[in-house]
């Protein structure tokens, strides 16, 4: 995948929250027993932005707010363009305004409980509605026109409209679905093809970590962005990321376990704290930048 860019500032915070020293104890072999902090609620989960897994399209979103029951609309015989296109001239689908909803939902008191809950949750103070674009990474704006020009049907990305209802897979594709199709169809496959508003914003990074040989999903789990994966597919938590790093950096992992690589603090004969690989090395760009040294010692000949 080559250069990958990232604009999500929250991930930065998650990394910072992880970058706390971790209490460990040494067992008889001098091997550390990893007891790092869990990815608690205070840590921003990757899945907030990078959706993975098999989330319930008609259930609650990751923030607990209700989501629109697309399947219910489909079962009523509605087509995508009935709500997402105002007219035939419109080039890309849009999130409808409440005017569109009102054509059917003219009496909210007669609506189902689910529908009322959705409107209640999205109603603004001024009486308008803000329907969230929850199910997408915020920096991806798919070029619908380009897809139609390539004769890609709505269903190819947004799920098979069996019985004219949205079914799984989800109505917004996982990234690997995009990538798989782009690879198969030999479409442009650079990250920046889809993730466009990247470099200007916030925390942009470039992958400088054997980028000729490796890509995002060699370390990140495609299904669950809150975990990492080993080369054999075994999921690994961020807290145990040293196992992932150790796949290539075996001798360094051995030295780290012995206390010869990495930094330890605490007591030389008791409780110690250690840092994980990613606490010191940015995993996307592990080489350290030069730093400014502290002042040189005085020269004896300068003494008065």
């Amino acid at each position: 995948m080559g250069a990958c860019t990232h604009e999500e500032p929250a991930l930065h915070d998650a990394h910072l929250a992880l970058a706390r020293p971790v209490a460990v104890s040494l067992d008889a072999d001098g091997v550390v027993a990893a007891k790092p902090p869990p990815l608690s609620e205070g840590v921003f989960p990757c899945s907030r932005c990078h959706l993975g897994g098999d989330a319930d399209q008609d259930g609650a979103g990751p923030d607990g707010a209700p989501t629109l029951a697309h399947a219910a609309h489909g079962r009523k015989g509605l087509e995508c363009e009935d709500c997402h296109f105002e007219d035939e001239e419109q080039e890309a689908p849009s999130i409808p305004t409440f005017d569109v909803c009102e054509e059917c939902h003219d009496d909210l008191s007669a609506d189902s409980e689910r529908a009322r809950a959705y409107f209640d949750a999205t109603r603004q103070e001024d009486g308008t509605y803000a329907f969230p674009k929850r199910w997408r990474t915020q920096d991806v704006e798919p070029a619908h026109g380009a897809h139609w020009d390539a004769d890609v049907e709505c269903e190819s990305c947004h799920g098979a409209a069996t019985d004219n209802a949205f079914t799984k897979p989800r109505s917004v594709p996982l990234m690997e679905r995009c990538v798989g199709c782009h690879v198969a169809e030999e479409a442009p496959n650079e990250c920046a093809t889809c993730h466009r508003e990247t470099t200007e914003k916030m925390h942009a990074f470039t992958l400088h970590h054997a980028e000729e040989q490796r890509g995002c999903l060699d370390c990140h789990d495609a299904e669950d962005r809150d975990t990492l994966r080993l080369a054999n597919g075994e999921p690994v938590s961020f807290e145990a990321s040293y196992r992932l790093c150790g796949q290539c950096h075996g001798p360094k992992l051995r030295d780290w376990r012995l206390g010869l690589h990495g930094k330890r603090s605490g007591e030389w004969n008791g409780r110690q704290e250690y840092l994980l690989c990613a606490h010191c090395h940015d995993p996307h760009r592990p080489r350290h930048d030069p730093v400014e040294p502290l002042p040189a010692p005085p020269r004896p000949e300068d003494a008065r």
Partner: peptide, 30 residues
């Protein structure tokens, strides 16, 4: 029981300290 100040201050973790008489200490492993 603490590490020397230079050990704790080193930002690159280049320093290893311990008891030479303890075969499990980091310095002996080193």
């Amino acid at each position: 029981g603490k590490f020397p100040a230079c050990h704790d201050a080193c930002p690159t973790g280049a320093r290893v300290f311990g008891n030479l008489l303890d075969p499990n200490s980091a310095i002996r492993q080193l």
